[in-house]
Amino acid sequence: MAGDKHSKDGGTHDESRRKFIKNTGMVAGGVVGGSLLGGLFTSQLTENQDTQTKSGHKEANFQEALQFFTRRDDFNVLQAATERIFPKNDHGPGAIGLGVPYYIDKQLAGLWGINGRDYRHSPFMPQTQKEVPNPELHPEQSALNRGLIFIHGLRRMNEESQKRFNQRFDEAEEDQQIEVMQDVEHDNVKMTGIAPSDFFFLLRQATLEGAYSDPLYGGNKNMEGWKMKNFPGAQPSYANVIEQDEFVQMEPISLTDYQGN
């Protein structure tokens, strides 16, 4: 069965990934080195350990480079923030381990990042305060597109961290990162063009998407997000089991397998 093949590969990937995360100290704070060197170092390690497949071939991972972000610093803040939203725990990997930051980078590089499906005619009436009459409208009333909202929001979090703790956001302590993020979530910092809470709404949504969308989008690595929840992916049918009382555990099926039959 198609699902079996993937779960075996997945197991191998998962193990090496965890080792890697431990070895590089990413586990506790989700902290990643901020320098270019750090980035290159990460890639090399990833390739060495992350690509050993069951059959013994080495397959390089060519999907984890930046499409949207241009400053590594912005991406580092993103990595740390997503890991705070969805941290590694006993259930399984956190946002970084699941590939969520790369998922978000890919999404921002595409239609979603430029609000390609949205009505974008002016006049815009951005809502930067909580007491606006239409709080349900969320980030869509901003003149900024989602890509710019992310860049503004991540830099704003970094500025706040440097101001308060004299540390880059991604190098600050976990508690300090959480403090900044809570203040963004509750509009206790200022931003122009969009309410901080609306940026945070997008950041949280995108993080969950990256954790649980089909792996074809670059997140939910090895379907580890689904495995944590016992979600079996693209199963063709539950007609034979839906009536039964017992909880059913199944190996997940990705769209790659489902469509490739």
Partner: peptide, 11 residues
């Protein structure tokens, strides 16, 4: 009130 456009599919 001034009506605002519904800009995205979330709404």
């Amino acid at each position: 009130e001034t009506a605002l456009p519904v800009r995205g599919n979330d709404n």
